[in-house]
Amino acid sequence: MRFSKKNLLSLAGAILIYFLVYWLQAAGVISAFQEINLMMVGINIILAVSLNLIVGFTGQLALGHAGFMAVGAYVSAILTTNLGQPFPVAILAGACTAAVAGIIIGLPTLRLRGDYLAIATLGFGEIIRGAANNINYIGGAAGMIGIPQLTNWTWLYLMMVLTILVIVNFLNSTHGRACVAIRENEIAAETMGINTTYYKVLAFAMGAFFAGIAGALYAHYFYLIQPATFTFFRSFDILVMVVFGGLGSITGSIIAAAAITIINAALQDLAVLRMVIYAVLLIVIMVFRPQGLMGTREFTLDRWVPKRGEASGSAGN
């Protein structure tokens, strides 16, 4: 790794945030309710950033992200709860299984375009949920209980930073540009020597991998998972964050995931009214800002740090 001034600043910022929250938590300033939402912010950031890779950057409309999350959640929970494996092993296994699911789904369905792909991926998500509903080993419709609570701030933060770092580094390379080229014009991309099938499947696999991590973190924080947690509404939720933040903007996804999670938490006491307000907000914001908060732009440190004369990438370094 090469450290430019900008990278060092980002690194310092990331470490500072970690210790700040760690200290606040140790000092007992963060309430139990706030902690839950903090965890949800982190998990949703992982989900939104990974879905943005598929939808926003590669241009493949996928509505099955909750399915990949479910795979990660269940596989990791089986490993820790039933097989007594350590948490890191469980996270990795959950993520890898989700990635394999991504490839299995990606390979055949990527012949489909646009809305057909959307409904096929939605269907796959529902198939995964339906399977979980029917397998007694993982509790059927009642779900799995008694999963050890292993997710803490350190794990969450580590995984979140890892997700963002890997995806941003991927996007700012020739491989990431290949994905963006597919979004912009698939035929031209293919005539420029890009193996479009390979990159579409790769985007699916990577997106699913990180959704699997999010699922593992979720399962080991709430120590209870049910098929009902992973309905297509959950996939919609993630898509809303991605579109709201801006398709093709990683920082947009991060901001939107955090904002939407916090808005949801703030309206908690309003019961059903909360969802009504949420729905109205969603409509109003999209009508007035259809490109999302950030569009395809990134919030970068470039504004404060002089550039090294490098070209502008499609995502912030």
């Binding site: 020739t174 014009n185 990438g313």
Partner: peptide
């Protein structure tokens, strides 16, 4: 058929991909 939303530079860089 250019990659319309990408920079001119990125259009060229993509062709160097393989």
């Amino acid at each position: 058929r250019l990659f319309g939303n990408l920079s001119v530079l990125d259009n060229i860089r993509i062709a160097y991909h393989w």
